[in-house]
Design a protein around this nucleic acid. Structure first.
Lengths: 350, 350
DNA sequence: GCGATTGTTTGCAACGATGCAAGAGGCAGT
DNA sequence: ACTGCCTCTTGCATCGTTGCAAACAATCGC
């Protein structure tokens, strides 16, 4: 920047003004500086800017596994939404590791990112500081962590209910829920499943919630395989808590020669891209990832602005905090049921 | 850091020495500083360190689309390999946009990352500076960009040849190649396809290379759909240039009632996770992503060290450059053929 | 024609860390 | 006791940028 300043015959500060789009710069000066900028191939040092201004233009996104299609799609949506705001995303893969997740909640990414979007898996409730984190943080999806953290995601109970209601409408009565585990997410989807069955008056003996450790294709496959080898009567539908499980289930059914949807209907959640290409194409609950990403970034922004006091400039003090708005569980984001062949019974029963 | 220094009764510099693991610090001092560090909850500011030391501990990874399973898997591998080295990965999604890719080659990520791993899609050959980039850069996979850039990836010609040889061994003779496009990658896989057919003495009239714009499920589906509706004789095998295309092809075959592998065998490249769960499970060429990630980071490291002169410290000058080693096309990384049902003909022809 | 207002440019210090080199203390050798 | 050579610790300047506020110039109202 000093070089550019000399080359253009102005002060360093003026160059900074031009670069950062300060209003009060004469057109003549701006043009001259701009020319020098181009000529010398100036590139802004984002580190230095971040150090001085306290804002880096980065947002960190932490997800358990990037290879899981849902998280990949989520990441893509966040990256795109961030790009629209001129923000760069720093993707961190926690591997679902408790320790890594704890470090994130403790602020491990704070000074390099203006805010953190965190999709927790193990979600260590005890690991969040009692007073809440001292940096902008938004949770994605459901989790076990403190209620005081802002979060963005669909209403899992409603989503599960919608999926199961669809199966009921197709005439299914012995519906297996696949995916219950220790997570809050799993609890909620099981809850929605139960609500739908209760409301439809399905006899309790027909409920079956299959526990699954991880929501992956592998576990879906193995669990359904085991289910089919069991002695009980065949279910007429499987509600998988996510599409990866459903994909595994479809594979297991296919391998066992069970016809889908004629013998067993299948529904998943997430509507990952591959769900349109399974055998048969998978019915799924599709969250609007763009809305999730957009809203999450908006909430981060609100926090950043509300907490303007800390580390922004040389002088201290700021607004007394707007507190409301982003605090508390925000409104759930929209989702819709995408019906494909895997759940379309030839002749819906009465 | 100043606070910690006061609290421990030492100079700021000594705290820095402790934090960065400098050798000549007495055990007593180290312990005392460490205690203050913990007590005050000190967190290193990576921006400041990066600004002063010239190294940030970040590596940027630029891929076209994170939702494409291959790139997600690649990213995951890179993130893991980087974590082992104490490096954080900054993931950038170019969207395959020419302008974005140009900006990356121009060094848009330089001062925030110590090096860049770049998986180019449009690969603008003209956009790389004639003298080569002035920052550590490693290309992932094949590309059209300058030969002088170090790159890491499998031998695409050999991979394609292997895939096609496998189909030939299964008795297939009328093999369609699916995926030729403008990319270098596509050219090489087509080349391997041709080599295998030539070597096997398959009559030229049986060659068929189907062009495809993007290597996605959608394009694979649409292209095969069109192929099946055509008047020509049915192929007995499809060699898809990647698994996403193969997945689309499988869906199209399934939708048209064509049995796989009995009527048409299918092979893909990449061995993405979902390939083990398709109908039927997909035979594929599996690159070793861990080796790719590891080697790529190693090459970056070599470049970083070789170019130690620029911007490292206050004084100038460094080693006279090792030049060799990372220069020129490095040895191809290993791959293997993973045989699944999609290519297993019931009775291999003579 | 003069102070007030607005518009434009600038100097200085600082963000939080590290490179460099020198200072302080201890110990052995002569 | 003096020198030389360790080990340990420290002060100062600096990375590239922006916050703050002052300086200067031009314009305006009366």
């Amino acid at each position: 920047m000093r070089d550019v300043a000399e080359h253009a015959g102005v002060s360093v500060r003026t160059v900074s003004n031009v670069v950062s789009g300060y209003t009060h710069v004469s057109d003549a000066t701006r043009a001259r500086v701009q020319r020098s900028l181009d000529e010398l191939g100036y590139k802004m040092d984002y580190l230095a800017r971040g150090l001085r201004s306290g804002r880096t233009g980065f947002v960190a996104l932490a997800v358990p596994f990037l290879v899981e299609p849902y998280f990949a799609a989520l990441a893509q949506a966040v990256i795109q939404a961030a790009a629209r705001r001129g923000i760069t995303v720093l993707v961190e893969s926690t591997g679902g590791d408790r320790e890594v997740e704890r470090r994130i909640l403790a602020g491990g990414l704070t000074n390099v990112a203006d805010g953190v979007l965190f999709s927790a898996l193990t979600a260590p409730a005890a690991d969040v500081p009692p007073a809440g984190p001292d940096f902008p943080l938004v949770m994605l999806g459901e989790h076990n962590v403190s209620d005081h953290l802002p979060r963005v995601g669909i209403d899992n109970v409603a989503a599960a209910r919608t999926a199961v209601e669809h199966l009921l409408a197709q005439g299914c009565r012995r519906i297996v829920a696949l995916g219950r585990n220790g997570s809050e997410n799993g609890r909620q989807r099981a809850e929605g499943y139960q609500q739908a069955l209760s409301a439809a008056g399905v006899r309790r003996v027909n409920w079956l919630v299959e526990p699954v450790d991880d929501w992956t294709r592998e576990h879906g496959y193995a669990t359904v395989r085991r289910l089919l080898e069991g002695s009980g009567p065949l279910p007429d539908a499987i509600f998988a808590f996510n599409d990866a499980l459903a994909v595994g289930a479809l594979r297991a059914l296919d391998a066992s020669g069970v016809r889908v949807p004629d013998e067993v209907a299948v529904v998943g959640v997430d509507d990952i891209p591959e769900s349109a290409y399974t055998h048969p194409p998978l019915t799924s609950i599709a969250p609007d990832l763009d809305v999730i990403a957009e809203r999450a970034l908006g909430l981060l922004d609100a926090q950043t602005r509300a907490a303007g006091r800390t580390g922004t400039g040389d002088a201290a003090e700021g607004a007394p905090d707007a507190d409301a708005d982003w605090h508390g569980p925000s409104e759930a984001t929209p989702f819709r049921l995408v019906v494909r062949e895997s759940s379309l019974r030839p002749a819906p029963a009465p």
